[in-house]
Design a protein around this nucleic acid. Sequence first.
DNA 1: TTTT
DNA 2: TTTT
Lengths: 164, 164, 164, 164
Amino acid sequence: MLNRVILIGRLTRDPELRYTPAGVAVTQFTLAVDRPFSNSQTREREADFINIVTWRQLAETCANYLRKGRLTAVEGRIQVRNYDNNEGKKVYVTEIVADNVRFLESSNSGNREEGSGAGSYNANASQGSGGGGGGNRYGGSREQQDPFIDDGKPIDISDDDLPF
Amino acid sequence: MLNRVILIGRLTRDPELRYTPAGVAVTQFTLAVDRPFSNSQTREREADFINIVTWRQLAETCANYLRKGRLTAVEGRIQVRNYDNNEGKKVYVTEIVADNVRFLESSNSGNREEGSGAGSYNANASQGSGGGGGGNRYGGSREQQDPFIDDGKPIDISDDDLPF
Amino acid sequence: MLNRVILIGRLTRDPELRYTPAGVAVTQFTLAVDRPFSNSQTREREADFINIVTWRQLAETCANYLRKGRLTAVEGRIQVRNYDNNEGKKVYVTEIVADNVRFLESSNSGNREEGSGAGSYNANASQGSGGGGGGNRYGGSREQQDPFIDDGKPIDISDDDLPF
Amino acid sequence: MLNRVILIGRLTRDPELRYTPAGVAVTQFTLAVDRPFSNSQTREREADFINIVTWRQLAETCANYLRKGRLTAVEGRIQVRNYDNNEGKKVYVTEIVADNVRFLESSNSGNREEGSGAGSYNANASQGSGGGGGGNRYGGSREQQDPFIDDGKPIDISDDDLPF
DNA sequence: TTTT
DNA sequence: TTTT
């Protein structure tokens, strides 16, 4: 009925841009979001690592402008998809389908890659509220693993599964 | 840095109340949240099933008042914890640690269990912004599975792991 | 850069549907949102009354299905517009431009007006993220008051001012 | 019932720290939040200016670390308070009572005031979910204007009115 | 009354 | 001007 997530964190690595067989752009990255409290005992594990997916134009923009370490705001919805692993067991994957991404650090404020870029750049999903989301049935993969894992091949998703 | 989730959905089953060895209440339930769009092809899979965890007083209140099917609003933060399964593989579990739960349906509006209850009842985490969160190291379990899976035994979490 | 509001409350009265001169539908209503705490002294003032605006298709749907007293969830962005009152003083108006409205109570759960309607009905802004927003220059009004105040005449907003 | 706001924007000026007669710290500032679209006609008016209030420890931290122009994330709830102006007319003031403020720009990333400060600093309301809120009856002021307007005197709020 |  |  209502499903809204807002996160601010830093990319754990450069974003990964791929394409579905039909040529739809998909970018994935992980956001490290510091927890609001510090683990009193074991100082370890003080951030949550949250997977983000973006589609189409927003995917391209994220791939172009986001880099590892950048402070980033993400708005979207939680999605739980599942696939059968090679032992035939259902694996559940939770990710945020982003429809709004804000680049809170320009390329020259700390990291120094691409050219210019001052202030904070904004990116919005073009198509309505929601942006879309990955389907959950990705038949045909002999290996039966997460179709989003990057193995150098195009993503094993039938475009029919894309709900938009 | 910032981690906020707001959901409205229905419980897929009655909530489960358990206690840590030190007597801290933990309640878990799953919210079915309808997607904003309809899958054009396969009419199937039109909701996300999102796991919710609540602690302490809020846990007791949720266990007392929530029931399967009830429309419920949840506010909290995303948490990703992990444990080693019996094959020694890390399994990642994503859940929402709720610090605010709103009961949008009273017991007499459709379901007819407990006594009275008119209008919508509210429940808040008592302890500051955040409410708490499950630890991520749960050593000692011979079975090595998700310590939150209900096997009729108390939850296998050292209270030292609770970060509050 | 990022502007997101989520509210759950009850309508203080029936929604008001009007049209701009160019025929764009605008619906306004007020949500009474109970505060999370109780005023210890004066038991009075325990809710915030928050103005909501919706546009186009969502406006029509809200006007059709929402009624005074109904529990409703609203998602949108805060907007601050201003106009000059009849003393030439700038008046600031804050309202929520909704792009997502969820009807948490059907017409037969308590109130008994319109026909059927079971469960909770959902409504989304059709046009992308944002839905739109009222312009801020509404020239030509002799009276110079809030162009949204209902005086039985069409809203005094040039359609050129609508930023969508 | 539920009232959540998340904003990212820039301070229009330095924050103002004041104290109630009983010594409770209150800090106010305004966030300029760029709109997600550009006004096609009149290039003017492309941000909303949203008033933020913080209390107690969070107020002190904001006063210490925030400065004009800084990119800042704010989480809180919308509050509508009102007072009678000097013509005896009720004036409504909408503001965000923040319980979580994130400093997205350190002092040395652009502006160069205070000492060090690298990365982004976080601040949280200490007391539970909500943080508090300004009372709504501020009797005794001869001038009958907004008690929050800075006239060099302590804020004209009875501490009894503070609901926490 | 407004920020980059 | 306010809802249950």
